[in-house]
Design a protein around this nucleic acid. Structure first.
Length: 473
RNA sequence: GCUCCCGUAGUCUAGUCCGGUCAAGGAUAUCGGGCCUUCGACCCGACAACGUGGGUUCGAAUCCCGCCGGGAGCACCA
C-alpha cells in the first residue's frame, strides 16, 4: 500500500488537515505500507502563494503528529517529467492549445460551446504546444486544455485546463519553468509514477477523480481508487488558513503555533497530545459529511490520556496578598500529593502561611464569608474587600474539613510569577507555587481549578516568570 | 442554473452495501445524585435521534421514488 499526502505550502497544518494526516497514517500503519509527502507546490496563483518557510513548518507538523513520511517529494522538482505525458495526451487527440481569454473560456464552458481552437488536429496541437514551451506565448495567452464532451452534464468537467503559463517566481525553482501543470494533470501522472495504490483525500477534490480517470482511460492506464473525507472543523476555530497566514506574517500572531491558529503545532504547544488528536480524528471515520465538532470533544480525549499522569500545582490569577491572623503554628510548610489518585506521582513540600496569595475574583465573591484554603485550613475573610485592595487581613478559624467554598492558594514564601498564555493570545499574569520554579520545558501540569497547561518549550528555570500555555479545562 | 455528495439525540458516530437479533448502541455535552479537600477525575442515574411524504414487504434507519434541508464543484488555485 502506497499512500500520499499533498499539502500546498501556504500555511501550517491546522486541525482541518488532521484527517489527511491521521487517516493516511492509519492505513500506512495498519497495512505496513508507505506514506509519501508530496508538496503540491506547482506555481499556484497570485492569490495562492507558496512560502518557502512553510515546507519546514509542515514537515515539523507531521513530526509532531507522529506521521513522519517515508519519503518527501516536491512537485516543483518534477515539472519536466510532466511534459512527455502531455505529449502523449496530445498525440491521442485528448487535448488542444486554446488561446481564448479566461473570461471567454468560462462563458463557453457554461454554454457548452466550442471555441475555434478546439478543431485542432493533434499535429497542430503539437506545434502550438511546442510554441508554448519555447516561450512563444506570454502568461495568460495560451493554455493546454483537456478535450472532454462539451455537453457533459457536469459543467465543471468540460474541457478543463491542463497546463498554463506563469511568470511568477517560484521560491524553490525560480523562473526555471514557465509552463506549469495544474493539480489534476500532475496527479494523473504522479499517482502512476510514484506507484500510489490508494488515494485518500478531501471531498473538495472529487471532480478531480473524474479528470484523472479520464486521462488514464485515454492512455490505457489504470490508476488507484479514490477515497474521500468531508470537511472537519472545530467550532471554536473559525479562522481560515489564509487569515492565519496574514496574522502570522504580520507578527500579529506568535508564529504558526499561536493558539489562535488552532494549528497542529498550537495544539501541541497547549499540551494536547498527538494521540488525542489522532483518536479524535479517527473517531469520525471517512464520512463525507462536513462536520463541526466542539473542541470540548478533543479536550475530553486529551484528558483521558493525560489526567492520570499530570501533576497538580497551585496557580493564583490576579493575586491579592492575604495575611492570616492567629495562624496556627507548625503549618508554615505542608506536604501535598502531586495527584489526588496517583500516589506514585509523589508529594512535594509546599510553603504555606501566614502570608498567602489568593485569587482576587474569589475574594470578591466571598467577602465576609468563611472559606477553605484547599488542603490546608479555614479562614474568615473581612466583610469589606475593596475592588483594588492591595492587602487583606483574614482570621484563622479551624482546620476541620467542612463544606466551604474552596480556594487554591499560594504561600508567599518561594512563590514564583507565572505568565499564562490564553486561547485568545492574551497574557494572564499570576503567581504559582514554588515547585514551579523547577519546571522543565514542555512539562504539563494541571493548575487546580484552572485547567491543564504546558510549559513553553523555550522556557528555562531562572529566566523570569514561568511561561505556560493554557490547554483546556 | 447545472453536476456530484450528504441528512441517526445539542454535537460526533455505530448500524444502511447483505431488511427481522435496533421498542436504535457508543462518545461528548447537559441535568440530577454520590465520592475524593479542584471548576479536574471517578461512580450511579436521567434527558435525547432514524429530515419528510409515498411505495415495496409479513416486516424498513436499512430497498425504490418524490420533496425538503445542508455542503462541494462549475479558477489559466490547491
Amino acid at each position: 500500500m502506497v499512500l500520499r499526502m499533498a499539502p500546498f505550502p501556504s500555511g501550517g497544518l491546522h486541525i482541518g488537515s488532521a484527517r489527511m494526516i491521521f487517516v493516511n497514517d492509519y492505513y500506512r500503519t495498519r497495512y505496513r505500507g508507505k506514506l509519501l509527502l508530496v508538496f503540491d507546490d506547482t506555481i499556484g496563483s497570485e492569490e495562492k502563494r507558496i512560502d518557502l518557510a512553510l515546507f519546514d513548518v509542515i514537515l515539523r507538523d507531521l513530526e509532531i503528529a507522529g506521521a513522519t513520511p517515508d519519503a518527501v517529494y516536491y512537485k516543483s522538482d518534477r515539472i519536466p517529467l510532466f511534459y512527455p505525458w502531455a505529449r502523449r495526451v496530445i498525440d491521442r487527440g485528448g487535448a488542444y492549445v486554446c488561446r481564448c481569454p479566461a473570461e471567454l473560456l468560462r462563458e463557453n464552458r457554461a454554454k457548452g460551446q466550442a471555441c475555434g481552437e478546439r478543431a485542432q488536429t493533434p499535429g497542430q496541437t503539437v506545434d502550438e504546444w511546442e510554441k508554448m514551451l519555447a516561450g512563444g506565448y506570454a502568461q495568460g495567452e495560451a493554455v493546454l486544455r483537456l478535450r472532454t464532451d462539451l455537453h457533459d452534464p457536469d459543467p465543471a468537467f468540460r474541457d478543463r485546463v491542463l497546463f498554463r503559463i506563469s511568470d511568477l517566481d517560484h521560491p524553490r525553482v525560480g523562473h526555471r519553468y514557465r509552463v506549469w501543470p495544474l493539480l489534476e494533470f500532475s496527479w494523473a501522472v504522479d499517482d502512476i509514477e510514484l506507484g500510489i495504490t490508494h488515494v485518500i483525500r478531501g471531498k473538495d477534490l472529487v471532480m478531480e477523480d473524474r479528470m484523472q480517470e479520464h486521462l488514464w482511460g485515454l492512455l490505457g492506464l489504470h490508476g488507484p481508487p479514490f477515497l474521500h473525507w468531508g470537511l472537519l472543523r472545530l467550532r471554536e476555530a473559525k479562522i481560515s488558513k489564509s487569515k492565519s497566514y496574514l496574522e502570522v506574517k504580520s507578527g500579529q500572531y506568535d508564529g504558526w503555533a499561536d493558539p489562535r491558529t488552532w494549528s497542529i503545532a498550537s495544539l501541541d504547544r497547549r499540551g494536547i497530545s498527538p494521540e488525542a488528536m489522532r483518536k479524535f480524528t479517527l473517531s469520525f471515520g471517512l464520512s463525507l459529511a462536513d462536520i463541526e465538532v466542539p473542541a470540548e470533544t478533543l479536550y475530553a480525549e486529551n484528558r483521558a490520556i493525560i489526567d492520570a499522569t499530570t501533576p497538580r500545582r497551585a496557580f493564583v490569577e490576579d493575586p491579592v496578598r492575604v495575611d492570616v491572623d492567629e495562624y496556627p503554628p507548625g503549618l508554615e510548610h505542608v506536604p501535598l500529593a502531586n495527584h489526588p489518585e496517583q500516589e506514585h506521582l509523589g508529594r512535594r513540600e509546599v510553603a504555606a502561611g501566614p502570608g498567602f496569595w489568593l485569587p482576587r475574583a474569589d475574594l470578591a465573591r466571598s467577602a465576609g464569608a468563611e472559606v477553605r484554603l484547599k488542603d490546608l485550613m479555614n479562614i474568615r475573610l473581612p466583610p469589606d474587600i475593596p475592588a483594588g485592595a492591595a492587602g487583606v487581613r483574614a482570621t484563622f478559624t479551624t482546620r476541620e474539613n467542612r463544606k466551604l467554598p474552596r480556594l487554591q492558594w499560594v504561600g508567599v514564601e518561594g512563590a514564583v510569577p507565572v505568565d499564562l498564555l490564553g486561547l485568545e493570545g492574551e497574557h494572564r499574569s499570576g503567581i504559582g507555587e514554588g515547585a514551579l520554579a523547577q519546571a522543565g520545558p514542555r512539562d504539563i501540569y494541571q493548575f487546580e481549578r484552572v485547567g491543564f497547561v504546558r510549559v513553553e518549550a523555550d522556557w528555562r528555570p531562572g529566566t523570569g516568570p514561568v511561561r505556560v500555555v493554557f490547554g483546556h479545562p
